[in-house]
């Protein structure tokens, strides 16, 4: 038997820098070798408050970033913290978005999903990939990471959609994706955002014969495959360990996909 040595105690890290992304969203920068791959997540312990999972938005081996929206509760406490204050980090955990050198990728982000998609883009350009970065939001003020994406170089094309037409295409990003897939040869579609949006993205991609990988967002309690809070119906696979990144083709027919998730005590909460 080979029991892997595994220490899941958190590492205390000072917040090196806090960057304000928009009215409700900050990026927290940590100087630390995390060794994550795009799509993986960490558990962030806000001392005395709570511990929550967050996708990694950037990791170059010297520093990593977590882009976090203040949705109240424990994130409100995080937003009171200052540079130099310490949080605890465990991870990286879970599966990653996998791609090959030179792939032509379409990255489709909804809302805060732009952060992990940026992580993919920043790694992909290092591997000579061509990247179509597609980000949708309700309005232009909620668009994230668009300026940073433009800084990644000429191998990255930015596509924007807003529900109200205040920037880019007026409508859903899935429409922009569909038009693109009909025009260009794309090797893989990666998406991160609300589950119902990812469901639509996966449907568009598969209809055009392109594989789509998405990031399952379920209530994760432990992050280490033990508690079972993030088990997905009806296969029982764990979003924290078998995911978060999963193939759309593997999840599209699961009874809970796009329909509900579970709360902290395990009760179903339907999307609507």
């Amino acid at each position: 038997m080979n029991i892997k040595t595994f220490d899941s105690r958190p590492v205390a890290l000072p917040i090196k820098k806090i960057v304000k992304e928009n009215e409700t969203t900050n990026t927290y920068v940590f100087e630390y070798f995390l060794g994550s791959k795009p799509g993986q997540f960490v558990m962030m312990w806000i001392p005395g408050v709570d511990e929550k999972p967050f996708s990694v938005a950037f990791d170059d081996g010297n520093e990593f970033w977590l882009t976090i929206c203040n949705v109240g509760g424990s994130t409100a406490e995080l937003f009171k913290m200052k540079e130099g204050d310490k949080v605890g980090i465990r991870g990286p955990f879970g599966t990653a978005y996998e791609f090959a050198d030179g792939d032509h990728l379409a990255l489709v982000a909804g809302g805060y999903g732009a952060a992990p998609m940026y992580n993919v883009a920043s790694e992909a350009v290092k591997k000579d990939c061509k990247v179509e970065f597609m980000v949708g939001a309700r309005n232009k003020d909620l668009l994230l990471y668009t300026h940073k994406v433009l800084g990644l170089g000429s191998n990255v094309n930015l596509h924007i959609s807003t529900d109200d037409g205040s920037a880019g295409f007026k409508g859903y990003i899935t429409q922009v994706l569909e038009d693109l897939l009909k025009k260009e040869k794309i090797d893989k579609v990666f998406t991160c955002g609300p589950e119902v949006m990812m469901q639509a993205v996966g449907g568009v991609a598969n209809a055009q014969g392109v594989d789509c990988y998405l990031s399952m967002e379920k209530y994760m309690k432990c992050g280490i495959g033990v508690c079972g809070q993030c088990a997905i119906d009806d296969t029982g696979v764990l979003a924290c360990k078998d995911g978060p990144v999963m193939n759309y083709a593997d999840v599209k027919d699961l009874p809970e996909f796009g329909k509900y998730h579970r709360d902290s005590v395990g009760k179903k909460k339907h999307f609507n």
């Binding site: 595994f6 220490d7 558990m43 511990e51 309690k221 508690c227 005590v265 395990g266």
Partner: peptide
């Protein structure tokens, strides 16, 4: 009845031991 349990962190492990205080969260 529904029981909330404790907030995180609720568990951690090393190669020698594991410790948890999930606090018996359950929907009832």
């Amino acid at each position: 009845e529904e029981h909330k349990g404790h907030s995180n962190p609720t568990m951690l492990g090393t190669e020698n031991y594991f410790i948890n205080a999930v606090g018996l969260s359950d929907a009832g």
